[in-house]
Structure formats: structure tokens, C-alpha cells
Amino acid sequence: MRILTAVIAIAVGSMVLLGYFSTSFINIQTLLLNWAIILAGVAALAGVFNLITVHGNKVRQAEKNSIYSAVLVISLIATFILGIILRPQHAVMQVILNGIILPVESTLMGLLTITLLYAGIRLLRRRVDVMSIFFIISAVIIFLGSATLPSGDIPLIGTLVRPWLSQIWAMGGARGILIGVALGTLVTGLRVLFGVERPYGGK
């Protein structure tokens, strides 16, 4: 079984990869990617089932804060059933989306700005080194240079320092990091493609 799963993964991976370099493999690449999308849809159902199982167990065992698990399971099942019966375009489903889900995500976004500010404040308490000081100074300059003030841009910082910092130094650093990430992704992908790394089939 393990060998079969590895053979399938390697064969499918190789054909999808070849599709990027040879026109003869484009059709099979498209077909395989479509299959993958369908499988990802099925996996989403498995993921939802996993979520219900985990939180259902918490409620059954009356674990700490299990009330939130109960709310999650009830909301999930109710939304799922309503979505199937009424369809996503129905007014009730739109109310659920626009009245509950989107505001909750917006609230989290607001909370995120506070936690980011707090993380910035704590940085120098946690780690006092040259890089952290540069990090804070850069963040403050970018922040001041991007701030919308009634008087317009802050002279020098908004017009000269911020663009110089963000378009030369930060851009260069970001490209360097992204090249590193791309190389890591390439090598990791090849490890999976050749079956050296097999996060499937229980090995």
C-alpha cells in the first residue's frame, strides 16, 4: 500500500511538473489538477467532520470552555443545513455572512492591529540587539511616512526617507528572503516528488 501511494504521488507529481515544460503534457496536467481540486473539496468535508468530532468530544467531556465548542458545533451544523436547503444566495444566508461572519473577521482585524502594536512595543524588552533597533526604527519611519495628516506628507520623511527605505532597503531584503524561500520550496518539492519525503501513506 505504501509503495502504491508513493508510485501514484511520484507519477502524478512528475506529470504535473512536465506540463509546465512540454505542451504534450498540458492536457494531462489540467486533468490531474482538476481531480486535485475535486479531492480538495472532499477533503474540506473531512476537515469539517474533524472539527465537529474534536469540539463534540470537548462538549461531551465537559472540558474547560466547552461552551464555545458547543456554540461552534451548533452554528456550524445550522449554517451547513441552512446553506444546503436555502442555497448560499438566499437572504438568510446573506444575513449570516454579512451580519455575523464578516463583522467577526473585521473585529479580529481590529484586534490584530492592537496585538501588532503590542508586539512592536515588547520587541525591545524581549531582544535588545542591533537588528531589533533597526526593525523598530524602520517601522516608525514607514509609519510616519505613510500617515495621512491634514498638512500632507511629513517633509523629508514622507517624501524622501520612506520611499528610500521601502523601495531600496526593504525591497532588497524582501527579495533576498523570497529567493531563500523559493529555494527551500524547490528542494522540499523535489524531496516530495522523489518520495524521499512522504507525508502520506503512514510513513
Binding site: L116, G120, L123, F135, A174, I177, G180, V181, L183, G184
Partner: peptide, 24 residues
């Protein structure tokens, strides 16, 4: 592997992992 995520984690962790160190 995301730049925004990396900068946030840089500010939030004791010892940050940058760029390709994720893959190490």
C-alpha cells in the same frame, strides 16, 4: 514563508527564523 508573517513572528518571538530557515 510569507513576508508579513515573518515580520510579525520576528517581533513576537525570542529567536526568529528568517526566510529559508523554515526549510532547515
Amino acid at each position: 514563508d510569507n513576508l508579513a508573517g515573518q515580520s510579525v513572528l520576528y517581533a513576537s518571538t525570542q529567536d526568529a527564523l528568517i526566510g529559508e530557515e523554515l526549510f532547515a
